[in-house]
Simulated scan of single mutants.
Amino acid sequence: MAKRVTLFEPPPLDPSKAPIENVLELTPVLDIGPDVFTNTRPLWHPPGARGIYGGAAIAQSLAAAQRTVPANFFVHSMHCYFVLAGDSEIPILYHVERVRDGKSFATRTVQARQRGRPIFTTTLSFSREGSGGKKTIEHAVPMPDVQLPPPEDNPFLKRLSNSGESGPFESRRAGILNRNSPHPTDKRIRQFNRCRGQISAEGGHQAHLSALAYITDSYFIGTVARVHDIPRFSSPAALQRALKALKNPSDLDDDTIANYLKDLAEEETAELRSRLEGALSKAQNSDKEVGMMVSLDHTIYFHNPSAFRADEWMLNEMESPWSGEGRGLVTQNIWSKDGVLIATCIQEGLIRLKQDDKKEDSGKTRASKL
C-alpha cells in the first residue's frame, strides 16, 4: 500500500491559479484546532538535499499566518529556524499561535511539525497598511544597472530555468559582479526569478508575498560555495550521487530533474573555465568538495508589499560577508522589475567540506584521548 504523503487526498490542480498557488495550497485541519493547517499537495525534495525544499516551509508558514490576520495587515518581517529536515513522504502540520493583535501591528508564531516534533519554526510581524502615516522617512538601495527582463531568445539561459519547464518558478543567471576578485566578499551573485503563469486575483497580494518567500530560499546558502569557486558537482561521481538522491519530486518527473542537474553541472564547468585557465582540472582534482550544506536560519524583511508581482521578473543579488567555523552567512536584496527594493534577506547555513584525510583525523582522535 502506497504511503500517503498528504493528510487528505489532494484535489485536482486549479487551472485558474498559478503553479505556485497550487504548490503552496493549505488545508485547514479543524479537528485539531482553528489555526492548524496542512500541506494540500506533496512537497518537493531537492536532489541531494537532506529534506524538503526550505522555501516551501517558509512560504506555507507565511500563508498559514496570513489567514489569521486582517486583510489589510501585511507581513514586514519573518524570522525562521530550520530545526529538522522535513520528510517529503509525511504530511506537515502548521500550528499558528496568535501572539499579539494591536491597532498597527500583529505578531504570529508558526510551528511546522511532523510526527509531533517541530521541524521548522518562525515568528512573523504584520503591520497595518498605511499605518506609517503620510510623512515617512524613505531610502533604498538602488537596483544594479542590469538588463531586465532577461533576454528570452537565449537557448542556453532557457536550459537553466529552475527545475525544467514544470517547476513553479524559473530562474536565469544575471552574472557575477567582481567575478575575478580573489576576495570572496567582493563578489555579488545575481539572478532573475519569477513565478510561472499568472497569480490569480483571488490570491491577492498575500499570494505574491508567499510566492516571494518561496523563491528567497533558492540557491541562497549556495552563494558561499560559489564565491569560493567550489562547484556543487566537482566530479561525475558527485553528479551521480545527486541524481540517485532523487526522492518524491512532487510535480517534477525524474527526467526533468536529471536534465536540470546536468545543465547545472555544465553551467558550473563553463563558469569555472571562464574564470581562470585550468580551473576545470583543478575542480576535478580539488581537495575542496562540499560535504554538507544545510540552512540553519532564514530572515526576510518585506518592503513595499503592494509594489510588485511575483509572476514578473525580479532581480536577486546575493553576497557573503563571512564564512567560518563550518558555517556561512549570506545576504540578499530583491528588486521588482520597476527597480523597487521589495525584500532584504539574511541566511546562515551549515557548510562542511568533505574531510578525506583519515590518517590525520585518527591521529587527532588518539591525541584527544591522551
Rank of each mutant, 00 (worst) to 15 (best):
T40K: 09
G116N: 06
A140G: 02
K3R: 13
S61E: 05
D14M: 02
S320N: 05
G363K: 07
L24A: 07
D338W: 04
L280R: 13
A245M: 01
Q198I: 14
P249R: 08
R190Q: 10
V294F: 08
Y219H: 14
K134F: 10
V340T: 10
R67Y: 01
V99G: 03
L93M: 04
E25D: 12
I342L: 00
K134T: 12
T136I: 14
R115W: 03
H183A: 13
D254T: 14
A237T: 14
P150Q: 06
P236S: 04
L84P: 00
D361Q: 13
K369F: 00
A56F: 09
E268W: 14
D297G: 08
K135R: 13
A279D: 12
K282G: 15
H139A: 04
G48E: 01
T123V: 09
I137F: 14
S281K: 14
S234Y: 12
I351N: 05
V75H: 02
T185V: 01
K187G: 08
Q284S: 15
A245C: 00
T6F: 01
W313D: 11
A225I: 03
L280A: 12
F126S: 10
H228V: 01
K369P: 00
Y81Q: 09
E97M: 00
R41I: 05
S286L: 08
R188H: 08
L93W: 00
E267H: 13
R188M: 03
N162T: 15
L43P: 01
A18K: 05
P70Q: 07
P150W: 09
I32E: 02
N316G: 11
G204F: 00
Y94A: 02
G167A: 13
Q355V: 06
L13V: 09
V294Q: 10
S127W: 04
I334R: 06
Q355S: 11
I52D: 00
T365R: 02
R100V: 00
Q66W: 03
E266F: 09
R117M: 12
T331W: 04
K354N: 11
P150E: 05
G175P: 03
D357E: 07
V340R: 04
T40V: 06
L24M: 10
L261D: 11
